[in-house]
């Protein structure tokens, strides 16, 4: 009985390799073991975003008056906090800085990573394995032990309080990550393609630009999105190396400039957090499959 049932299900349109052995469970049991916990997980994981969004459109008088207004809902939503944020603070400037810095450091890191990954994975120079391992170890060096010596360097180089301080230091964690990811990607491209090109008289440069790079566009997109998100989210370097308000990035600006000592502008803070999260969330939603596969791929390597 069980056998025929199994066979039937595995022949079904969904296939047996996809969903575990859920078909052996009765519905009430599935509700308790799967749907209910899933619902709780989703609720807990998403509630802070909901709370962020609700707070950002709440008029100030409802913000702390839980007795007259239900805190979970908002009556007469207002865009006042967004208006304040965009016209009365330096927020648009922070947004622009963050875009510029993230794009710059992503570009720089991708450029360096493509060459490095190609050399390690395909040129296979002597010692390439060791270099590959060193790059992996470089990824494990956390920013929290580098920010003090880097701040000394940034100061000596005259980069303190400029975007270049961040564009040049973000590659310390982006280059290892992108290289590692692209190495895995290049490995999946068949050697035969390169051999054919070599026989036809192509140079290594031509092979890289005409064969390898066009084939690894998905890998480049993954690495690019990841690098962009990581630099967008970076905090400790941006906090340490930037001082003046107009040069700050979004995470640092929201935390250091919008928080006043006496009264917290919760509406504006939440609006700032919301707008600051939006670009990476949009980017993420467009490339969700790339994102997931590169994240899991990078760990599995």
């Amino acid at each position: 009985m069980a056998v025929t049932e199994t066979r039937k299900t595995s022949l079904g349109p969904k296939g047996g390799d996809d969903g575990g052995m859920g078909y052996l469970q009765s519905l009430p049991r599935r509700v308790v073991t799967v749907y209910l916990p899933l619902l709780i997980f989703v609720f807990v994981l998403l509630f802070p975003f909901y709370w962020m969004a609700v707070t950002s459109v709440k008029p100030n008088e409802q913000m702390t008056n839980f007795n007259d207004y239900s805190p979970f809902w908002v009556i007469g939503p207002t865009l006042e906090h967004f208006r304040y944020l965009l016209f009365d603070t330096s927020y648009p400037g922070w947004l622009w800085n963050t875009i510029l810095i993230s794009a710059g450091s992503t570009f720089l890191s991708l450029l360096a990573a493509v060459f490095a990954a190609y050399a390690i994975e395909r040129l296979r120079f002597s010692g390439s394995r060791q270099v590959g391992l060193a790059i992996f170890l470089a990824y494990l060096v956390p920013p929290s032990i580098l920010f003090i010596p880097l701040s000394v360097m940034v100061f000596r180089l005259g980069l303190y309080d400029t975007p270049f301080a961040l564009i040049l230091t973000y590659p310390t964690f982006l280059v290892p990550f992108c290289t590692w990811l692209l190495m895995g990607y290049f490995r999946s491209i068949p050697f035969e393609l390169e051999e054919c090109a070599l026989i036809d008289g192509a140079s290594r440069w031509q092979i890289l630009t005409k064969i390898i790079l066009p084939l690894s566009v998905p890998g480049l997109i993954s690495a690019g999105i990841f690098a962009f998100t990581l630099s967008w989210n970076e905090f400790i370097y941006a906090l340490t190396f930037i001082q003046s308000s107009e040069n700050k990035t979004v995470p640092v600006g929201v935390l250091t400039e919008l928080v006043r000592s006496d009264v917290y502008e919760w509406g504006a803070l939440m609006a700032g957090a919301l707008i600051g999260s939006l670009p990476v969330v949009i980017l993420y939603s467009f490339f969700v499959e790339h994102y997931v596969s590169s994240m899991t791929g990078a760990v599995k390597e």
Binding site: K14, D18, G19, G20, G22, Y23, R30, V34, L38, F41, V42, L45, L46, P48, F49, W51, M52, T229, W232, N233, F235, V250, P251, V252, V254, L255, L269, M270, G272, A273, G276, S277, V280, V281, Y284, S285, V288, Y291, V292
Partner: peptide, 27 residues
């Protein structure tokens, strides 16, 4: 498990990780 809307759940579950830590920490 074999869930309806599986890829949708997988996508939204990752959100806390995608959003800048500082901004979710403010929330």
């Amino acid at each position: 498990e074999n869930l309806p809307l599986k890829s949708f759940f997988r996508a939204i579950v990752l959100l806390p990780w995608v959003v800048p830590t500082v901004l979710s920490a403010i929330a």
